[in-house]
């Protein structure tokens, strides 16, 4: 029987991701795992992430999961969430500069502190419900209203000029990539597992996705 692997690097709250996925699929088993074999044999892989990019990559190597994750990124439907989106880019400024997986073209940088918009201080982290403007149609956007709000919490953001990979943009003083797509890989900066019904809808679309766009 096929299963969905949620990559566990031991840092974040994966309970919610697991529960939310279980809510949207009756057929597939959800396995939260640090075992490369379980990732390699999965039908779908979820790459969540919290905390800092440098320690995320250190944990990836300490758990010996880099090869399995890289393999999944070219073979099966993968959903990156939060840091799992940022890790797909070439480079992040976080932790004194961190090299990413380079699946998506672009870089990750920090929101400026003390930036004001209409005289209001833009707080960092960018935390709360913000609008996600879809840039093109994609199986993962099925049934999700364009411009609806999802829940975000992050201090770094991805920017890219590769239009074909920008699945959605969000504005917080500046425009950043809130969803990215590249063949069998889809990634979101927001937390679908914390975004009410529209979040569950996106997860449902993911577990039903065959990786083609």
């Amino acid at each position: 029987m096929s299963h969905i692997a949620v990559v566990d690097l031991g840092t974040g709250n994966l309970h919610s991701v697991g529960k939310a996925l279980q809510k949207v699929t009756a057929k597939q088993r959800i396995v939260i795992t640090s075992d490369p074999n379980v990732i390699t044999s999965a039908s779908h892989v979820v790459l969540p992430g919290q905390g800092a990019m440098g320690s995320w990559f250190r944990a990836l190597d300490e758990h010996d999961l880099r090869a399995a994750v890289v393999n999944a990124l070219s073979t099966c439907p993968v959903l990156g969430i939060c840091l799992g989106l940022q890790a797909l880019y070439s480079h992040s400024d976080e932790d004194g500069g961190t090299t990413g997986l380079g699946i998506m073209s672009g870089n990750v940088r920090k929101f400026p502190i003390n930036q004001r918009l209409n005289n209001e201080l833009l707080k960092v982290p960018h935390m709360g419900w913000n609008r996600v403007q879809q840039c093109f149609s994609h199986p993962l956007w099925t049934g999700i209203e364009d411009g609806i709000r999802f829940y975000f919490v992050h201090s770094y953001y991805a920017y890219s000029d590769m239009v074909s990979e920008i699945a959605a943009l969000t504005n917080y003083g500046l425009s950043f990539v809130s969803a990215a797509a590249h063949s069998n890989v889809f990634a979101v900066q927001f937390h679908p597992e914390k975004s009410h019904e529209q979040g569950l809808m996106l997860l449902h679309n993911f577990v039903c996705w065959n990786g083609e766009s």
Binding site: N118, H126, G128, W129, N130, R149, T170, N171
Partner: peptide, 8 residues
């Protein structure tokens, strides 16, 4: 600005 104020 599109970030919503939150009620908790």
């Amino acid at each position: 600005m599109a970030l919503a104020k939150r009620i908790i």
